[in-house]
Design a protein around this nucleic acid. Structure first.
Length: 266
DNA sequence: AGTACCACCTGACGGC
DNA sequence: TGCCGTCAGGTGGTAC
């Protein structure tokens, strides 16, 4: 699930449920999600600490601790946070659990174990090490256009390139291109300034509305407009905009869905 | 630089 | 019903 809109909602969830609470203990459900740190060391670093501030950059969440260190979270292909008051209730795939001194806990649920959690001294260093570009919702139109003017290759691949722009994945790149009526294989150099501006506006519109409609929580397909691609991402489905037939193709070994009528081949 | 393929994991789904 | 191949919203490494 987790692309920018989903992660933004998890970021807000963490802000509401994880900050300012004293961490009494840390439970390790699976050490596979630990990024270059042992469960023992992570627990030792967190006991007695509180998270103070949470930020999001692309698909990553960074949360400061009251001793100046930062936790970083990435969900991989599955996952979310879930908070509980009842110590006996828990998330199905709880891989890392923060047990708070107030008796509640927060689970980092990560079914497929592609997620990662670790510690870093500085968010800026972390972003640089991961070679992340600017966050897709933080970049302004001029910088977006400038960055894409330097880019080659297919537009869908460019949108998903985390070093160019951080936060967009397979689902939302399809949605943005559907909104902008661009074929996913369109070469970026074919896009003139107006087309890039349109693409930028589509990106913002899609990401912002997805956040607003509760991306990352169950049932988001029903809450986004029916004129979106998301509720109809299936080969043979009909396009709600033009009546065409939704098709899938492989781009960078990922399945891309689009409407061949609305999004004509370049 | 861009793209293709593999690997890492778990689980759901369709076909037989 | 049960087994098996395939596929899933991410990323990192390798190779061409």
């Amino acid at each position: 699930m987790p692309e920018l809109p989903d992660v933004e909602n998890y970021h807000r969830y963490l802000t509401d449920h994880g900050l300012k609470r004293e961490i009494a203990d840390v439970g390790i459900g699976s050490a596979k999600v630990l990024d270059h740190i042992s469960g023992k060391d992570l627990a030792a670093a967190l006991k007695g600490r509180r998270m103070v501030e949470a930020r999001r950059h692309g698909k990553h969440i960074l949360a400061s601790l009251d001793d100046g260190q930062w936790l970083h979270f990435h969900f991989g292909m599955t996952g979310f946070f879930a908070a509980f008051d009842d110590p006996n209730t828990d998330s199905a795939h709880d891989r890392l659990r923060f047990d708070f001194a107030d008796g509640g806990h927060l689970a980092f649920d990560n079914q497929r174990l592609f997620g990662r959690v670790g510690l870093t001294q500085d968010p800026a260093d972390f972003i640089e090490e991961k070679e992340l570009g600017p966050d897709a919702l933080a970049i302004d139109a001029d910088s977006f256009i400038a960055a894409f003017k330097e880019k080659r290759g297919q537009v869908k691949a460019a949108l998903m390139d985390q070093s160019l722009l951080a936060g967009i994945g397979n689902i939302y790149s399809d949605e943005i291109l559907y909104d902008a009526k661009l074929h996913p294989k369109t070469p970026v150099p074919d896009l003139d300034e107006d087309a890039l501006e349109t693409l930028y506006k589509s990106m913002r519109r899609v990401l912002e509305m997805a956040i607003e409609r509760g991306a990352g929580f169950e049932g988001v397909e029903q809450r986004v407009p029916d004129t979106w691609l998301l509720p109809h991402r299936q080969d043979g489905e009909s396009c709600r905009r033009c009546g065409g037939t939704i098709r899938s193709i492989k781009i960078q070994s990922r399945t891309a869905y689009y409407c061949p009528d609305c999004q004509p081949a370049p």
